[in-house]
Design a protein around this nucleic acid. Structure first.
Lengths: 165, 165
DNA sequence: GTCAGTGCAAATACTTTGCATGATA
DNA sequence: TATCATGCAAAGTATTTGCACTGAC
């Protein structure tokens, strides 16, 4: 699946963003940025660090990964997704519609979904509470089809679901 | 506002839970448990630790607070609420209906709300994705009425909202 | 040439753990 | 009396920061 916006267009935006913030384009930033848009998957700081370490190119330290992801987030290029218990992964944003996440507690697979009805109800509740809503995070957790099948074969699905609920 | 279940009834449940798990009732556990149900507010590990340190009674170490909150969570007496960016606070559960949270990004105030329509839509989405849903977390963030008023006085509301969005 | 960015190692913040001691059932 | 729980300090883990050096503009 390709993004509706191609790599070079996104890169131009990044250049632009750096310029407006008087930040500099460095090989490290470029590597991190490109990797973030090349993968169509969620990644942690550690994962990004390992990816870059395993490939050719200028070395990138953990500190720089932290610092750069912060810049990318501030610029709206990536977004942090809390997967639970303090764990954070990132996903690139440009060319993607807003969406929420459904995470498999067994294999950690992350599915995305959108539901305008839910969004509308969120806004309604915020308003009722007298808040100006600026953001939200909705995360569903459960057992994905594949993992459920495996458990079902062993007759352990009910048990697991009960334990998790 | 009082819970529909009184303190002693909750405490009996705790005794029972400890017994079924072959755990022991200690002064430390009792202090933490009672404080968790006495306050009608969300608390962090650190906050609980500080509360107990400031009051009479047997000393409670940080390690014990961590360990006991884990026990209370496992027993379904309290629930962890992620307030964002890895921060976790707890709230007591018994006698409270399930609810979601709306957090003020300025003063950190937490409001609770319930919306059965949202719950139903969540279940629908999970099903569509082929998941057996076992849990969810919905957190709205924004600026509460009071903080919004303050910003409005200074004419900085629009600006802040734009920055946060 | 100036200012920002980088790597490194140290510092920080938060949480968990091993172990000797003490308390509960 | 047999566990189990506690406090303490040490060890993890994840992230941030100070600083000297390097590199982009």
């Amino acid at each position: 699946m390709n993004s509706p916006m191609d790599q070079s267009a996104i890169e131009r935006r990044f250049d632009e963003f750096l310029r407006t913030e008087s930040l500099k384009m460095t090989p490290q930033r470029r590597r991190i940025f490109e990797k973030a848009f090349e993968v169509h998957d969620h990644f942690s700081v550690e994962r990004m660090y390992e990816w870059l370490k395993g490939e050719d190119g200028p070395a990138v330290s953990r500190a720089t990964v932290y610092r750069t992801l912060e810049v990318l987030e501030r610029g709206g290029f990536i977004e942090a997704v809390e997967t639970g218990r303090g764990e954070v992964v990132y996903e690139h944003v440009l060319g993607h519609e807003h969406h929420d996440h459904m995470i498999c507690v067994m294999c950690k697979r992350i599915e995305e979904f959108q539901d305008e009805e839910i969004e509308a109800l969120q806004r309604k509740n915020a308003e009722r509470l007298g808040f100006v809503m600026t953001g939200h995070m909705l995360r569903l957790s459960g057992i994905c089809g594949d993992c459920a099948d495996e458990l079902r074969e062993d007759g352990r699905l009910e048990e697991e679901v009960a334990r998790l609920r």
